[in-house]
Design a protein around this nucleic acid. Structure first.
Lengths: 149, 149
DNA sequence: GTAAAACTGAAAATCTTTCGCATCTTGATC
DNA sequence: GATCAAGATGCGAAAGATTTTCAGTTTTAC
């Protein structure tokens, strides 16, 4: 029973979850839906959990972590460890990108820079490393926060 | 009493600690000594604590964290958050550098790349961010681990 | 429909790091 | 040297983030 509302959007999510090799369950559909429609591109597990609560969903925080971790393993989302305790998750847009993070307001700007990518590849090669991944985060103060003093 | 052995090296450490504006205490001298002579450039608080234990020093883990945090504040060491739970600390060599980390054996190679630094500055400027700091970590498999399969 | 495999919620457990507090040291001063 | 206030330390407890355990539930393939 409890047939989760099967509107158009959910259908898409269902497919993404299936393609990831996971069973289609209410928590997964709901969490993926939140990541896709919530506006914030970077959410902590706690953020997702709170959003679920505000939608009166009875999904535990442990499940949120489990689902996000599975999504990560399936390549649906990326986990980032910025400064400050918790990790944040973002939908995997397919192409890798780096981040500019405001230390005051937490604002996050994404960017891609081919020159940097190339240099990284070069450096890895020089050291005989096979690159698997990389993380570049530039911390600073955004214009708004600079203005506010 | 308990005059900590005042050999040549300790004298240097004492001065560094004094210069940092901290009182010269046994735990601080000992911890700084370990960081300087331990061979590993990147140590977690736990690593330092274990090394202390193996030297029969009665220094608590809380103190290790406190001292490392103070050293960080004083600019003597840098704290890094790589993948995997704990932070690692390294002596501040003065010039900023980035890291290449082997996902299998944990080996760490440091590097500096002016081109990347410049691009970062440019990107920050384009987005009207005032850079405070940055963290670039390239994860991969080192040659040894590639060889081992 | 049925059953096996996978999933879930809630609580408990882990892990890393910090805090509270009573006690002890350091460093400046007599 | 002896004295003393400020600052440190050790220990256990606490905190915060994330994971595991476990018993009950749901999904999916047949």
């Amino acid at each position: 029973m409890a047939e989760t509302q099967q509107d158009g959007e959910s259908q898409l999510e269902n497919q993404q979850i299936k393609d990831a090799g996971l069973k289609v369950t209410a928590p997964r559909v709901k969490i993926l839906g939140i990541l896709e429609s919530c506006g914030k591109r970077h959410m902590s597990a706690e953020d997702v959990y709170k959003e679920l609560l505000s939608q009166d969903e009875e999904i535990g925080l442990a499940t949120v972590y489990r689902v996000l971790t599975q999504f990560e393993g399936a390549g649906l989302v990326c986990r980032r460890h910025f400064e400050g305790g918790q990790s944040v998750f973002e939908l995997n847009s397919g192409e890798h990108h780096d981040h500019l993070v405001c230390l005051k307001c937490g604002r996050i700007v994404e960017f891609v820079d081919p020159t940097i990518e190339k240099r990284q590849a070069k450096i890895a090669a020089e050291n005989h490393f096979k690159i698997e991944d990389h993380s570049l985060v530039v911390y600073g103060i955004c214009s708004d926060c600079q203005a506010k003093g």
